[in-house]
């Protein structure tokens, strides 16, 4: 790894010299992100989805629980442009209004998993020794449990509402973040500037959160972004199995409640499924773009 960072500048400066004279990292980050076509596409898509979710209800004010037409009216009908579900509710309105809960669950679950993961990983990586061993054993314990099953058990025991679902997803998906954070901490804590801070008398807490963490953040930010995507998929999976919150409209819920009718009414499952797909795709592309833009070696390519 260190070899690679050392060799990179040797090959890079010649073609990049005029363009890359970065004074502020944020500007350079934006420039490099903008040059990444897929990432830009992902960002546009993500913004479009966010607009649909937050402004959509104002433009298309149909209540997702209103019966607007016969059950299973196909798309293109007079009352429901994207068809209706098994009760006769508007699928389009369901997609527009269901986005909020889906995105909220995804984001909140990602926050839980990232905070938990960083905390565990940082402590393990910083202190090493027995603390590291103990914390990593706990992490491994969670890692070997089948995540979906564990989440199903949590939701079954504590009830199907958005809070337990979010907590369940967060609880099962933090170990990856913890592993990543630990690796970063192990690497950074031996760097000179950390040693310098330590000799200057910085306390451990200061070292962890003020000195090492900022340096470790870039890969963790990417991991957080991607875990939003996987949390959305997770929520959809739980809903598909009938464990979604029946009182909150979400994409997963539409898919899950209509799955018995896939053969009779494809649009009820397919369209919210497409919404989930596009969202996760957008988040992944943006996450990749951020990763590329933050990674100095890839940036110079």
């Amino acid at each position: 790894m260190t070899d690679a960072t050392n060799t990179a500048p040797l090959t890079a400066p010649v073609p990049e010299a005029p363009a890359a004279r970065p004074t502020r990292p944020a500007v350079e980050f934006a420039r490099s992100f903008a040059a990444n076509r897929p990432a830009l596409f992902g960002l546009v898509l993500l913004i479009a989805i966010l607009c649909m979710t937050f402004l959509g209800p104002l433009i298309y004010p149909v209540n997702p629980y209103d019966i607007v037409d016969m059950p299973f009216a196909p798309p293109g009908g007079e009352y429901a442009p994207l068809g209706t579900d098994y009760v006769g509710r508007d699928i389009l309105s369901g997609i527009i209004n269901g986005g909020r809960a889906t995105l909220a669950v995804g984001a909140a679950a990602a926050v839980i998993s990232v905070v938990l993961g960083i905390l565990m990983g940082a402590l393990a990586g910083f202190y090493e020794g027995p603390i590291d061993a103990a914390l990593m054993k706990v992490t491994e314990f969670f890692q070997i449990l089948p995540t979906l099953l564990l989440a199903m058990v949590v939701v079954t025991v504590f009830g199907s509402n958005l809070y337990t679902i979010t907590a369940a997803i967060g609880i099962v998906s933090w170990p990856q973040v913890a592993r990543l954070a630990r690796a970063e901490f192990l690497r950074i804590r031996k760097l000179d500037y950390v040693e310098a801070a330590r000799t200057a008398g910085a306390r451990n807490r200061y070292l962890i959160f003020r000195v090492i963490l900022p340096g470790a953040l870039p890969p963790l930010v990417v991991a957080a972004g991607l875990s939003v995507g996987s949390s959305i998929l997770f929520e959809a999976g739980l809903s598909f199995l009938g464990l979604g919150d029946p009182n909150t409209m979400s994409w997963g819920l539409i898919v899950g409640q209509n799955r018995n009718y896939l053969l009779d009414a494809w649009w009820t499952v397919t369209l919210p499924g497409v919404a989930i797909f596009l969202t996760v795709l957008a988040i992944s592309l943006v996450g990749d773009g951020i990763n590329d833009a933050l990674n100095p070696r890839l940036r110079r390519r």
Binding site: Y65, Y86, V87, S160, P246, N247, Q257
Partner: peptide
């Protein structure tokens, strides 16, 4: 489930909010 989900829509029309409770 379908009848109960229908009730959620139907009772909204007369001002009653339905919370569906599922049992595992």
């Amino acid at each position: 489930r379908n009848v109960v989900e229908y009730m959620r829509s139907a009772l909204r029309q007369v001002g009653i909010k339905v919370e569906v409770r599922t049992s595992p």
